[in-house]
Design a protein around this nucleic acid. Structure first.
Length: 506
RNA sequence: GCGCCUCUAGCUCAAUGGUAGAGCAGUGGACUUUUAAUCCAUUGGUUCUGGGUUCGAGACCCAGGGGGCGCACCA
């Protein structure tokens, strides 16, 4: 190396790779500091969001200028330099508006500073609202301050980012350039806030229960295991919200819900992320029929709030959610699909034979109820495009649900399906502590037999039930899937800001 | 975990086994009503990594890595 450091710097400053680009922008920051300006000021007072500017003045006549002064802030997304006149596009969260920068108005120094901005820089401007000759609403800039210098170039100004790896790893960059990504997360936000409103309107109160569990109960799933040092105790990240929320019903809170992250140590796919968001709600004195009605209301309201319509695209078919949703028993769907009547009271051998016809492989310990569910999944689930409440799940696969008041082999339970996917699950809650203990013991037996998704006996939960839980209806909704449905996307990663990915090799 | 596809400039994409290119971004210049501004000039490469075949590899082969899709898993 016989180059002097100066020569090296000169070299990077004349190149245009990423390293050179960053070096140029760092040099600009130095220049700004040298000139007595602050490249990263602490705050900026804005008078309007861009959407407010548009709402208040969007209709002014082409070629006119108001005397309305505004201060706005955002990221500079485009710049069209015209010698003594610069047009730039400024974007904030709410909207995008054109900036009209005239050398004669801002003066020589400010004009040079603006011309020297890079796409992606955060700026605040003060000026008057106007419309150009072509009618484009603009802000005639009188002064500009840099709010934060961008060191890296933003991705392609009109094709955005397409590489899914980069989009999910660098979500910040995705959000800067991809309008659809911003839209999906706006829909997700509106949906969640709609759920909160519907529930609180019904007298529910929002609670928070532990993420760290002694026993990973409330669902069948492999848990993540972690360790608490002080207690020297292995703990599980929750796989469901259910058991703690029902303890609160025992405590007399009557109507509770939680929207929370749960964790399942299982495969990842377009529909599965290891951590995802569940909404669970429990209502004293209610049964499954009340919960079915609530579920319809929650999802229909969410569509109306997030999309402005109850008509949604379900796998290419436009469906009005405000129409009544179908209810059908799981055993009836299986009978419909196979032409054979099925019931969990049947001998397991009969169902095994039927399962074999449909290529459903049965584990030796499965009973009739579990096989019926597998048959349902193999033959019927994927056909349920329109919203459908599948009801009457066998007792064997529903350890926390109450037995159907007319059929001791079934439970008062439903799962909601749309586009062939499960969205929600609810039931009349089992509140008899003696029966609950028996159900847990069956689970324990399955666990002992090697089922690593089965749960053990939750003694504290039994103790809670022994204090008395009123009749209760409960619900669980996979919020990510509702968001996917409303946003019209086919991958769960499109509605999770930072989906789980393998570590990046830098 | 298995199968198929994919990875080239900051971004979006090209390139019969034969000198790695374009558009945007960047840099220099012209322009006071642009809209992905336009026009002229121009810089920029570990072709994911490591091996191999070949006179010659971005391309073909092997191994590894990231991602996508499908299957499995997910009551």
């Amino acid at each position: 190396m016989n180059e002097t450091p100066d020569e090296i710097i000169d070299d990077t400053l004349t190149g245009s790779g990423l390293v050179a680009e960053k070096a140029k922008r760092l040099a600009k920051v130095d220049e700004i500091r040298t000139s007595g300006q602050e490249p990263y000021p602490y705050r900026f007072d804005r008078s309007h969001t861009l959407a407010e500017v548009r709402a208040e003045h969007g209709t002014i006549e082409a070629g006119t200028e108001t005397d309305v002064h505004v201060s706005v802030a955002g990221r500079m997304m485009l710049k069209r330099d015209g010698g003594k006149l610069i047009f730039a596009n400024l974007r904030d969260r709410s909207d995008q508006i054109q900036l009209f920068i005239s050398k004669a108005v801002v003066g020589e120094d400010a004009f040079v500073a603006i011309a020297d901005l890079d796409l992606g820089d955060w700026i605040g401007v003060e000026g008057v609202v106007m419309a150009t000759r072509t009618g484009e609403l603009s802000i005639k800039v009188r002064s500009m301050v840099l709010l934060a210098k961008a060191m890296r170039p933003i991705p392609d100004k009109w094709k955005g980012l397409t590489d899914t790896d980069t989009r999910f790893r660098q979500r910040y960059a995705d959000l800067i350039v991809n309008e659809e990504a911003r839209r999906a997360f706006q829909i997700r936000h509106t949906m969640i806030s709609s759920f909160r409103k519907t529930l609180t309107d019904h007298g529910y109160i929002e609670v928070e229960t532990p993420v760290l569990h002694m026993e990973a109960g409330g669902a069948h799933a492999r848990p993540f295991i972690t360790h608490h040092n002080t207690l020297d105790l292995d703990l599980y990240l929750r796989i469901a919200l259910e058991l703690h929320l029902k303890r609160l019903i025992v405590g007399g809170m009557e109507r509770v819900f939680e929207i929370g992250r749960i964790f399942r140590n299982e495969g990842m796919s377009t529909r599965h992320n290891p951590e995802f968001t569940m909404m669970e709600s429990y209502q004293a004195f209610a049964d499954v029929s009340d919960i079915i009605a609530l579920t319809e209301e929650l999802i229909t309201n969410a569509a109306r709030d997030a999309l402005g319509t109850t008509v949604v695209d379900l796998g290419g078919e436009m469906v009005d959610l405000s129409q009544p949703w179908r209810q059908v028993r799981m055993i009836d769907l299986v009978a419909e699909a196979t032409g054979v009547e099925v019931h969990p009271s049947q001998p397991v051998e009969q169902l095994r034979e039927l399962a074999a016809k449909y290529d459903v492989k049965c584990a030796p310990r499965w009973g009739s109820g579990k096989i019926i569910e597998e048959l349902f999944e193999a033959t019927s689930e994927h056909l349920l495009i329109h919203p459908t409440f599948v009801t009457g799940h066998p007792v064997e696969i529903s350890p926390l649900a109450r037995v159907d008041r007319t059929d001791p082999f079934l439970t008062e339970r439903f799962e909601l399906f749309m586009v062939g996917r499960e969205f929600a699950n609810g039931y009349s809650e089992l509140n008899d502590p003696v029966e609950q203990r028996l159900r847990f013991e069956n689970e324990q037996a399955a666990k002992d037999a090697g089922d690593d998704e089965a749960t053990g006996v939750d003694e504290d939960y039994i103790r809670a039930l022994e204090y008395g839980m009123p009749p209760t209806g409960g619900l669980g909704v996979g919020m990510d899937r509702v968001a996917m449905m409303l946003a019209g996307v086919s991958s769960i990663k499109e509605v999770i800001l930072f989906p789980t990915l393998r570590p990046e090799v830098l």
